[in-house]
């Protein structure tokens, strides 16, 4: 194989690279100069959720682990016979997104979607699980 060390059309190549770099880094320096940090959304609790004081697990844990808990629930309900979840402090819950989670958190737009939109995650739960049972009832 022939080895080439000469760079042809230096000006065009480097100008192109510069333009590329500017475009790629645009969001960073735009934010530095003109942007202001968007505030992280706070999910709104319904009065039922507030009254309950604690969810299946403490709030901090729910924040970081709810997706994994739902995954465990899903696996247990869909693939095994077990459908009841007993919390460490002894409370029982039916493992159902529509009928347990949304029972309290029926304000999906303010509770679920707000953060999901902010974090740019798009869970497909709602494709099949009715997203607002109270509304349909």
């Amino acid at each position: 194989m022939s080895k080439q060390t000469q760079v042809y059309d230096k000006e065009i190549v480097f100008a192109g690279l510069a333009v590329f770099l500017i475009i790629v880094t645009f969001p960073f320096w735009y934010n530095l100069v003109l942007g202001k940090a968007a505030s992280a959304p706070v999910p709104e609790l319904t009065k039922e959720a507030k009254a309950a004081k604690t969810c299946v697990l403490p709030a901090a844990e729910m924040k970081s682990e709810h997706m994994r808990i739902l995954d465990v629930w899903r696996h247990s309900v869909v693939r095994q016979v077990k459908r009841v979840y007993t919390t460490p402090d002894g409370r029982d819950f039916e493992m159902s997104l529509t009928n347990s989670c949304l029972e309290c958190h029926y304000n999906k737009t303010e509770f679920c979607d707000k953060c999901h939109t902010y974090a740019s995650v798009d869970p497909y739960c709602w494709d099949c699980h009715i997203d607002n049972p109270k509304e349909i009832k």
Binding site: V81, Y85, T87, P88
Partner: peptide
């Protein structure tokens, strides 16, 4: 999940899943 669960093993009562 397997990997995470390997780190488990606390002494306090754990959450459980069961049949109705």
């Amino acid at each position: 999940v397997n990997v995470l669960s390997a780190a488990g093993g606390g002494e306090t009562p754990a959450a459980k899943v069961a049949k109705h």
